[in-house]
């Protein structure tokens, strides 16, 4: 039985974002990278007593080349499928030593939805005291954009040159099935929201999860300056929904509430992206139906007593 503890502190106001930087100005990230943008706020929220556990992903690359590192917290790099298991050992060791150090897995979608899912499921089932953040650029980014379980229907990648014929795996539903005390979605385009959610997640004991949409200019094939805009279009079109689920109780974010009432056309989100170039009307229609179904499901869950 999992013992549920209340959050250590309620965050009723948006805290001022600290000036301290933990992602220093020497990363080897691509221009317009939202992985590093998101990580900047994640670490600002977590503070210096934090260890990042990073499986193979873009973040393995952007931290720089050994013996240099661009991150000002300890980073433990681990094999692709092993991040959550490694973190569970680390968290147990810290707790055994009486340390409260935050253990944060910072993993891409491949390392989360595909190769790392077994270890992650195990770590959640065992109630590991850690925060798992999946930054999702919807493909294997640092190796040149091959499909992952997170690649959306219709998107072209190097291994789905004609567009992906399978839908995106719903990792959030899979996480929800583990009944963690806290899970949330976020987007690099909304750093305040992300900051707040990371701070909140770290107040819980037990496994917590944040799924961050991280648009990727070279992978999604849009121009670098549009990274933030792309994240916002995803939310405004309903393609990405911002929410939190705390002890099973769902709260949809204000931005997504607005999008549910009055969404922008999906085409406004798809058109600027080269990966959706040539997508047929039928596929767009299927995506729209899926969005509608997802939004209806979430609205019903939030409204349920």
């Amino acid at each position: 039985m999992r013992i549920r503890s209340p959050p250590l502190q309620e965050l009723d106001t948006i805290a001022e974002i600290p000036k301290e930087e933990y992602v220093l100005k020497c990363t080897s990230a691509c221009a317009g990278c939202s992985d590093s943008l998101a990580l900047r706020y994640v670490l600002k929220a977590a503070g210096p007593d934090t260890v990042l556990v990073v499986p193979a992903c873009c973040t393995s690359v952007i931290q720089g080349i050994w013996p240099n590192t661009a991150f000002n917290v300890p980073v433990y790099n681990i094999a692709f499928g092993a991040a959550a298991a490694c973190a569970s050992g680390m968290s147990n060791a810290f707790r055994a030593a009486g340390k409260k150090t935050n253990v944060i897995v910072y993993a891409g979608d491949g390392g989360t939805l595909d190769i790392g899912i077994q270890a992650m499921s195990g770590a959640f089932e065992r109630g590991t005291d850690f925060l798992y953040i999946c930054y999702d650029n919807e493909a294997y980014g640092n190796t040149g954009m091959q499909r992952s379980g997170a690649t959306p229907l219709g998107a072209r990648t190097t291994t789905t040159p004609a567009g992906k014929t399978d839908a995106k795996k719903d990792i959030d539903a899979i996480i929800a099935a583990h009944d963690p005390p806290y899970q949330a979605t976020a987007a690099a385009a909304y750093p305040q929201d992300l900051f707040k959610k990371v701070q909140k997640a770290l107040t819980f004991r037990g496994p917590t999860f944040i799924h961050v949409l991280a648009p990727c200019p070279p992978g999604w094939r849009y121009s670098t300056e549009k990274t933030v805009e792309m994240g916002k279009l995803a939310v405004k079109s309903g393609m990405w929904v911002l929410y939190e689920r705390e002890y099973g109780r769902l709260t949809i974010g204000a931005q997504s509430k607005a999008a549910m009432k009055k969404p922008i056309p999906l085409e406004d989100y798809l058109a600027p992206q080269g990966r959706f170039k040539g997508i047929d009307a039928k596929t767009v229609d299927i995506i729209k139906q899926r969005i509608a179904r997802n939004l209806a499901r979430l609205a019903a869950e939030e409204a349920a007593p």
């Binding site: 210096p48 007593d49 934090t50 260890v51 393995s60 690359v61 931290q63 720089g64 080349i65 050994w66 240099n68 590192t69 991150f71 000002n72 917290v73 300890p74 980073v75 433990y76 790099n77 681990i78 150090t101």
Partner: peptide, 11 residues
């Protein structure tokens, strides 16, 4: 964490 380092990065 008081003396942060990277472990096993790109080499």
């Amino acid at each position: 964490t008081k003396n942060p380092a990277g472990y096993g990065g790109l080499t």
